[in-house]
Simulated scan of single mutants.
Amino acid sequence: MRLGMITLDTLDPTPVATWWAGVLGGSLSDAGGTGEFVVLSGAIPGINLGFAKVPDPTPGKSLMHLDLDLEAGEDREALFASVLAAGATHQAHHEYPGIQWDVFEDPFGTVFCIGDAHD
């Protein structure tokens, strides 16, 4: 068994998926052609991101979020600037000995983190 997809609930999957495709790359497909479930593939090797239309997303902080790791040699400030320019908002910065990460929110309210690579 392997993780094949991480699915995010949203009121309108297409614009959310399009935003993430703009940030991460990859390609979008509309499963079923109804706009109710959009899949982003090729952005994260071996894992698809799904965006599911729901009538009422769970209020408050989601119990699941994306942790995006910086790659070796990647410029933290340049990456943050590009994510912010794409419409994300910065929520917080955290540091513990040996690791740091920043919390962001996409334009649709989805929380995600960008941090040092996990070993």
Results as ranks from 00 to 15, higher is better:
R2C: 01
R2H: 07
R2K: 10
L3C: 07
G4Y: 08
G4D: 11
G4S: 08
T7M: 11
T7Y: 05
T10A: 12
L11Q: 13
D12K: 02
D12T: 12
P13Y: 03
P13D: 07
T14C: 05
T14P: 02
T14L: 14
T14M: 14
T14Q: 10
P15V: 06
V16W: 02
A17E: 07
T18M: 07
W20A: 13
W20Y: 14
A21T: 14
A21L: 12
A21E: 15
A21V: 11
V23C: 10
V23S: 01
L24K: 07
G25N: 02
G26L: 08
S27T: 15
S27H: 10
D30R: 00
A31W: 14
G32K: 00
T34V: 04
E36T: 11
V38W: 03
V39N: 02
V39F: 00
L40D: 07
L40H: 10
S41K: 13
G42V: 02
G42T: 06
I44W: 07
I44V: 09
G46N: 13
I47D: 05
I47H: 13
I47N: 08
I47G: 08
N48Y: 00
N48K: 05
G50C: 04
F51S: 08
A52Y: 09
K53N: 00
V54C: 02
P55M: 01
P55E: 04
D56C: 00
P57M: 02
T58Y: 01
T58Q: 03
T58D: 03
T58I: 09
G60E: 13
S62R: 12
S62G: 13
L63A: 15
M64S: 02
H65L: 13
D67N: 02
D67F: 09
D67L: 03
L68C: 04
L68P: 00
D69N: 12
L70S: 00
E71A: 14
E74S: 05
D75E: 06
R76L: 05
R76E: 09
A78D: 14
A78S: 14
A78G: 12
A78M: 10
A78P: 04
F80D: 15
F80A: 15
F80E: 15
A81S: 13
S82A: 12
L84G: 00
A85V: 07
A85E: 15
A86E: 09
G87N: 12
A88H: 01
A88G: 04
A88M: 09
T89M: 04
T89D: 06
H90G: 09
H90Y: 06
Q91C: 02
Q91E: 05
A92W: 14
A92I: 12
A92C: 07
A92R: 15
H93W: 11
H93I: 10
H94L: 15
H94F: 15
E95V: 11
E95W: 01
Y96K: 15
Y96L: 15
Y96A: 15
P97D: 12
G98P: 08
G98L: 10
G98I: 06
I99E: 12
D102I: 11
V103L: 14
V103P: 05
F104E: 12
F104P: 11
E105L: 11
D106Q: 01
F108S: 04
G109T: 10
T110D: 09
V111W: 07
G115H: 05
D116V: 01
D116K: 00
A117L: 08
A117H: 13
